[in-house]
Design a protein around this nucleic acid. Structure first.
Length: 731
DNA sequence: TGCCGGACGTAAGTT
DNA sequence: ACGTCCGGCA
């Protein structure tokens, strides 16, 4: 048995695996077998006779947790070790001990959308105009505060934003009233529990004698504190991570947590895994050159164990359409010729908004794909609607869910009725659902609204009797009896939406079968914590499309990264500070190091944005890769590219001065404009069907097209590519 | 009173 | 190209 665990390991991997007592830091470069180390170490501990319940494995994503559970299972069947995300772990702790710090054990979890809704409603209550203070900004400030372990009181003392402090305070009060925790609270309340309740802390510290934390470079202040509090008396803490792959600074991750591990645990052992078994040396060299440009970094070399393989390609396209089409066609060809299967390919981009064009191209080329975008499956409207009903059954005070459920399907209860209901509820300190009888008795509501409300209350009462039974039949009952199913069927994409609900029911069936599942509350909690990525099927015969963030931890034989343009990668919001810029560089580094055999990078010189075309600049990271850019038509101006990158590194962006080719390839849209440009000149008055009359302020060469900038009275200044723009000259 | 369609403003990443 | 808001209609 022990041989099976230790044999396949390298020297340093074995060193990490066989380290048992005391703190251990594994600094693991990409593709260095980090997951293998963790899973084999768990197996090793089990083999030594450590009871599985004393081992705790914490990851950031469900996917990572599942993969680990599965791989440990291959070494030790039915191992019984708890492996899960930080958030899941916190849910578990809070359900059991949360009451000691005033957390309702039946709490519901509010996701980002619920949070948005609640913050908006709080701002309404406080009569804060949305125009004067953007709710989205408020959200991110509050979330940031929570990730820094800063509660409303402490936040108010910082006092740089009075208004936000008031919203924050009220928001927390509302969550408490509603019996809800948002994502950040799961961590925050757990940290509070562990630091305020020594009895619980000590018990859990003892209980989880062996703790392993993956991706430690991505821990935030609260997660850091939780880990610290659980490894004080029994510090058998093993963390793994790679500072070069820290990409979650924007949500409060603190790269210093991993950098100071040695100081936190002076007796710790450090093992470095620097051999890369994943990528060809060509790919690795590119990654290495790129990341060497980060200044806030400990020097580290990646050692390749593989031959050079195919060179990394970097291509420039005129438009995003060509870029997408080229990727789709290439993949199709490689599969058709039998060299590859679709599952070998992954396509990454910085922002999920970029996938639309790509999707079209893939569909057009008949390439099967799965998108793993930011929009989680469980955030789809229909899923949220159904979950709102379920949440209401568990927690009748959950007004947010009530409001959602009562409106879908529309049943004749509108804002006016709801406002009256809210008044009554507030007067009696009840939830909206609970206040229905009072409102009806008061006689304030009559007619359809009254009967609908009454019926709704009765139905919920009926369903509540079933909450301890299996989940799947309950869902089915709810969607039929509420009229939701028949209503949704008649809406836009009704069939699709119904299918999504079916998928939820399938998940519920699965959940029902698992013996130790914790009932409806647990199902809802897991749904809130589930992501798109969890539904991902790597063995399926499809190309995978995802963001660079989502790609972390994965690997593919062939990787495409597209949209490598300034403003996209690095993202426009990240170019102002060196720290953020370097995080963007790490993001590209993560993407590059996912590739095993082939890596294709590309950018487009123009891209549709907000419905209009705009010119782009190549990413400032591209010159750092040390590879030449290929033009769509070979030997075309390498010089122009060099100029541009030189200009880039010198300073602020210069207007892109491209060349104009005599003929476009496979483009139908070019027409109407004469060879020397177009009919627009600076000063020309033009009419736009939507924006009305405006005046041309700028005419610039844009590769093959001409960019026309027009100032409109109302719409302000906008740019168009001349041949496509619906502009009519007025002269 | 509630619902629907056009106008308007707006867009990072994830648990 | 998209969701959200407001005003008019049922």
């Amino acid at each position: 048995m022990r041989n099976k665990i230790l044999e396949p390991l390298t020297e340093s991997q074995r060193e990490a695996v066989t380290h048992v007592e005391g703190p251990l830091l594994v600094v693991a470069g990409p593709g260095s077998g980090k997951t293998r180390v963790i899973t084999h170490r768990i197996a090793y501990l089990l083999d030594l006779g450590v009871p599985p319940q004393h081992i705790l494995g914490i990851t950031f994503t469900n996917k990572a947790a599942n993969e680990m559970a599965e791989r440990v299972g291959r070494l030790v069947p039915r191992h019984g070790v708890w492996l899960g995300t930080f958030h899941k772990f916190c849910v578990r702790v809070l359900r059991r001990y949360g009451e000691r710090i005033g957390v309702d054990p039946n709490f519901v979890i509010y996701d980002t959308k619920d949070r948005t809704d609640l913050i908006r409603s709080v701002m309404e209550d406080l009569r804060i105009d949305r125009a004067s203070l953007d709710p989205r900004r408020v959200e991110s400030i509050i979330s940031r505060a929570k990730n820094e372990n800063c509660m409303p009181k402490a936040f108010a003392k910082r006092a740089d934003n009075d208004l936000v402090a008031r919203i924050y305070e009220r928001y927390q009060e509302r969550l408490l009233e509603l019996g809800a925790l948002d994502f950040d609270d799961l961590l925050l309340q757990t940290a509070r529990l562990l630091s305020d309740d020594e009895e619980v802390r000590a018990a859990l510290d003892q209980h989880f004698a062996f703790i392993m934390v993956d991706e430690y470079q991505d821990t935030n202040a609260v997660q850091y504190q939780i880990v610290r509090l659980l490894s004080r008396d029994v510090p058998n803490l093993c963390v793994t991570g790679d500072p070069d792959q820290s990409i979650y600074g924007w949500r409060g991750a603190n790269i210093r947590n991993i950098l100071r591990f040695e100081k936190d645990y002076p007796s710790c052992r450090i093992v470095r895994l620097e051999e890369n078994f994943r990528s060809t040396s060509s790919i690795l060299e590119v990654a290495d050159r790129l990341i060497a440009n980060n200044t806030l970094r400990k020097e580290k070399r990646l050692r390749s164990t593989r031959p050079p393989g195919a060179p990394v390609r970097l291509r420039a396209f005129e438009t995003e359409l060509e870029e997408a089409a080229a990727i789709a066609q290439e993949i199709r060809q490689q599969v058709r010729s039998g060299q590859r299967s679709y599952a070998d390919f992954a396509i990454f981009c910085r922002v999920s908004a970029l996938t639309r064009t790509l999707e079209n191209a893939l569909r057009h080329a008949g390439v099967p794909y799965q998108i793993l975008s930011g929009v989680a499956f469980y955030e789809r409207a229909e899923i949220k609607d159904v979950l709102a009903y379920l949440r209401l059954l568990i927690n009748p005070r959950d007004d947010l869910s009530f409001q959602r459920a009562i409106k879908s399907p529309p049943r004749g209860v509108g804002d006016t009725t709801l406002q009256r209901l809210a008044q009554v509820a507030r007067a009696h300190g009840l939830g909206l659902l609970e206040a229905i009888p009072l409102l009806l008795d008061s006689g304030q509501v009559r007619g359809k609204a009254a009967t609908s409300l009454k019926r709704f209350g009765e139905l919920v009462g009926e369903w509540q009797k079933e909450v301890d039974g299996p989940v799947a039949p309950l869902i089915r009952r709810v969607i039929v009896e509420s009229g939701y199913a028949s209503w949704v069927e008649g809406t836009d994409r009704g069939q699709d939406r119904l299918e999504n609900i079916e998928e939820l029911i399938t998940a519920a069936q699965q959940f029902d079968v698992e013996s130790d599942s914790g009932g409806l509350a647990q199902f809802i909690a897991e749904s809130a914590l589930a992501t798109d990525l969890d539904r991902w099927d790597q063995d399926g015969s499809t190309v995978s499309v995802m963001t660079l963030h989502a790609a972390k931890g994965l690997e593919f034989p062939v990787v495409y990264i597209f949209g490598l343009e300034d403003g996209i990668l690095p993202h426009a919001r990240c170019v102002d500070s060196l720290e953020q810029l370097e995080e963007e560089r790490r993001l590209l580094f993560v993407g590059i190091t996912r590739a095993q055999e082939e890596l294709h990078l590309s950018y487009a010189r123009s891209r549709a944005f907000r419905g209009a075309f705009a010119l782009t600049h190549p990413s400032r990271f591209l010159p750092e890769l040390g590879i030449a850019v290929e033009e769509l038509e070979q030997e075309m101006d390498r010089a122009a590219w060099m100029d541009r990158s030189a200009a880039r590194s010198r300073g602020p962006a210069l207007p892109s001065v491209g060349r104009r080719r005599a003929s476009g390839r496979g483009r139908q849209v070019v027409s109407g404009s004469s060879s020397n440009g177009c009919e627009f000149q600076v000063g020309t008055w033009v009419r736009h069907p939507k924006h009305g009359v405006g005046r041309v302020t700028q005419v610039a060469d844009a590769g093959e097209f001409v960019k026309v900038t027009v100032r409109f009275d109302k719409a302000g200044t906008r740019s168009f590519l001349a041949p496509m723009a619906p502009l009519t000259p007025l002269d």
